[in-house]
Structures are given as C-alpha cells and as structure tokens.
C-alpha cells in the first residue's frame, strides 16, 4: 500500500530532519532563545530547500545526497529530533539514554559479525524482541517519560505498516546516530553532575 510512496516519504522525512538539525544547531549557537514561529518557518524553508531538486550539476535533491550517506534514520531518532523544536519539549531522560547505549554496545558488534548470534535477525518478527520493546515502552511511561511511550508506539506502528524500506523492527527503533547520541550523553551527564556538585559546594561551603 505504501510501497509506491516509499521513496517520497523517505525524502520528505530526510528533508524535514535535515532542516530540524540546522535549526537545532542554530539554537545551540545562538545566545537568545529563537521563538517557535521563527523555528517553524526556518524548518519549512530549509525543508523545502532539501526536498526539491536544485538543478545545477546535481542530479538529485539535497536530501537524497544526505540519505545516500546516512541511510534511513530510525523513527525514534526522527521523532526525537523533530519534537526537540517544539516549545514544551520534554528533555530526554538519562534513564532512556543509558539502556539505549548499553543495548547499542551489545547489539552492533553482534549484528556486524561477531559470532554466529545475530540479534538483528530478531527484528524480522521475533515475538521476544517485540515483548521486550513493549516492556521498555511501559517502563518509560511508568518512569514519567510519556513522550517515550508515544515515540516507541509510533515506531512499532511504522514497522507494522512497512513505512520504510526495511522490514526489520530494529531499523525503526535504533540507528548508529541515536546510539552515538546516547553514548555521548552518559559522560556528558556525569561531567555535568560533577560540575553542579562542585559549584554547589563552592556556594554553600561552610565559612
């Protein structure tokens, strides 16, 4: 049903993702908070720039070049990125990033040929993996990260409806960029905690 539109959907998603990444970078570099309306406008403009073929010597739209290098991003990555431009965006908890990083550390070496066990193959329809994902989403919800429940649910539905080229659930949940982000978040959080501790120690040191 979706098959004729697979490439179009993928290009639209990639265009939007590229636009959002630029807006996030601009926000990081900017000292003032960029208003939501400006962010939205920038996403729309940049999204169009990435989506439509620009001609010149390029045979494809810009998003297609990015897609050639990055492949399809997981639905979880895309939704996390897209939701980050929304004003009331909930910060992703460390309780999501740490297990994600641990899963990635175990998953990628095995999936890329270390031994005969291939966890990636479970993604084609293992009921065990599906139960694990549902449990993970429930834990996210019980821990108070409601956005996580929505994101994982959307990823599961996208898989069931063949939203992307892949028929593997892993490709809807995890990608190397998400794994790197989760891995970096751990030392970053430790560093930030130590800094906060040091600062509070300085302010309230007994005279």
């Amino acid at each position: 049903m979706i098959t004729p539109y697979l490439q179009l959907i993928a290009l639209l998603e990639m265009s939007l993702t590229c636009a959002v990444v630029f807006v996030i970078l601009a926000q990081k570099l900017s000292s003032i908070d960029i208003p939501f309306s400006v962010r939205l406008l920038a996403v729309l403009l940049l999204g169009n720039l990435f989506f439509w073929p620009l001609g010149m010597s390029m045979e494809l739209p810009l998003a297609a070049y990015v897609r050639g290098v990055t492949g399809e991003l997981s639905v979880v990555t895309m939704l996390l990125l897209w939701s980050s431009v929304i004003p009331s965006n909930q910060k992703t908890p460390l309780g999501f990033k740490v297990p994600l990083a641990l899963i990635a550390i175990a998953f990628y070496p095995l999936a890329l040929g270390l031994g005969m066990l291939d966890p990636y193959a479970w993604g084609y329809g293992s009921i065990g993996l599906l139960i694990a994902v549902i449990l993970f989403a429930i834990i996210c919800g019980l821990a108070g990260w409601i956005k996580g429940v929505w994101i994982i649910s959307f990823a599961m539905i996208a898989w069931a409806s063949h939203w992307h080229e892949s028929a593997n659930l892993w490709d809807y949940l995890l990608d190397p960029f998400l794994a790197i982000w989760a891995l970096i978040a751990i030392p970053k959080a430790i560093y930030q905690k130590r800094r906060e501790k040091a600062q509070s120690g300085y302010l309230f040191r007994a005279g």
């Binding site: 599906l130 549902i134 989403a137 429930i138 919800g141 429940v149 929505w150 994982i152 649910s153 959307f154 599961m156 539905i157 898989w159 069931a160 409806s161 659930l169």
Partner: peptide, 11 residues
C-alpha cells in the same frame, strides 16, 4: 498507554 496497546496489537 492506550496508544501503546494499539501499537502492540498491530505489531
């Protein structure tokens, strides 16, 4: 959670 239930059934 209702949405997750729907997703679980579909998957």
């Amino acid at each position: 959670f209702c949405f997750l239930l729907l997703a679980s059934v579909l998957t």
